[in-house]
Design a protein around this nucleic acid. Structure first.
Lengths: 191, 191
DNA sequence: ATAGTGATGTGACTTGGTAACGTCACCGTA
DNA sequence: TACGGTGACGTTACCAAGTCACATCACTAT
């Protein structure tokens, strides 16, 4: 795996995750990452990722696309919450069990690094906005779309946290289903 | 207003807001800010703010405190949404009309700068978490508290946006009241 | 062979952010 | 009046993130 091998992007991601897990995010230099990814350099890193944080969140727009498409394809008669539910199922189902270990590592690093928590919050907000936009083009009102989207996002993140931190062998989709039900129950008790 | 005058912190904030509004955030250097704030230096800036973004968000923990206290003091019989409502009123009422112009400027800069949008999202998440925590210590369930807190935060931010961008002379508290009602109405149509 | 193309490297630069150490104003006390 | 202490501030030097212009390498097609 040397300089001119293909998949530099994937190698960079892998190297970054490894180094962050070993030494922590702040203690790891971009040069280090590039070096471990087959003797690359800082410049190449920045050709693939806009900044140091992004290497851990790259490709996350796919999640928004999955949810948006599921919402667009939901049956005519679906309520906003039903659209969100099918979007949530679609997204959660796209995570194979094998990714659980990586997810766990990822989550640990992010949770322990303010800089990454910040980026995570930002991504989460963007994802919520994209979902709300998809709901709006299905005719849902602005505020209604925002609330429903927020519920979906919250369900996903909560499910992801349980998936990566709880001992069982449940699927992410199963967790998501559960959380969604709990969320709807909690909704009923609010007032 | 020279080097050893008091209120360096306030002078730094004022200088930063001015410069960001004039030249944009990225085009403004920390040395510039410190210089305009009465011949100060970078070091002094960092003694008052942990990083360049923070100068625009400093003192925002107060908002969380206001909401938390209102929730703690809500009547025994209050539902979660009623607690959030009184917290929202308390927070919105703490913004005098005079701050509207500053708020408008602030918002413009933040909206046009990715780096600041990110910090804003992070602050918003922290605020939501603090509110949820306050609700939980009033006995609300974890997920219920998170949803209710999210609704309150969303109401506040939406109200703030309307306050700073709409032409009328309505108070922030009035906007917040309206948004809260709309939010509850939207909630009912979700499923 | 050669020319083009895309991925990579080099080197120099700006700026955010940190740290060690020195300096100035002010205040209380002897 | 002199003295010492204490914050707030400055100086200097440094590191790493991020940008840019320009050079180089591998590969492919003509």
């Amino acid at each position: 795996m040397a300089r001119w091998d293909p998949n530099a992007r994937e190698r960079l991601i892998r190297a970054a995750v490894e180094l962050f897990a070993e030494q922590g995010y702040e203690a790891t230099t971009i040069n280090e990452i590039a070096q471990r990814a087959g003797g690359l350099t800082k410049t190449t890193f920045f050709r693939h990722f806009s900044d140091k944080r992004e290497v851990l969140f790259a490709g996350q727009e796919i999640h928004s696309r999955i949810m948006s498409e599921a919402i667009a394809e939901a049956p005519e008669s679906a309520t906003p919450l039903e659209m969100v539910k099918s979007a949530l199922d679609a997204l959660a189902s796209s995570f194979p069990q094998e990714r659980r270990e990586v997810g766990r590592k990822l989550r640990t690093v992010v949770v322990n690094t303010p800089e990454l928590r910040e980026r995570s919050a930002s991504k989460r907000a963007a994802h919520t906005a994209a979902t709300a936009e998809a709901l709006r083009s299905r005719g849902v009102s602005q505020l209604g779309a925002e609330i429903a989207a927020e519920l979906g996002t919250r369900a996903f993140y909560t499910a992801f946290e349980r998936w990566t931190t709880s001992p069982g062998t449940k699927t992410l989709a199963e967790h998501a289903h559960e959380v969604f039900l709990e969320l709807k129950a909690a909704l009923a008790v609010l007032e």
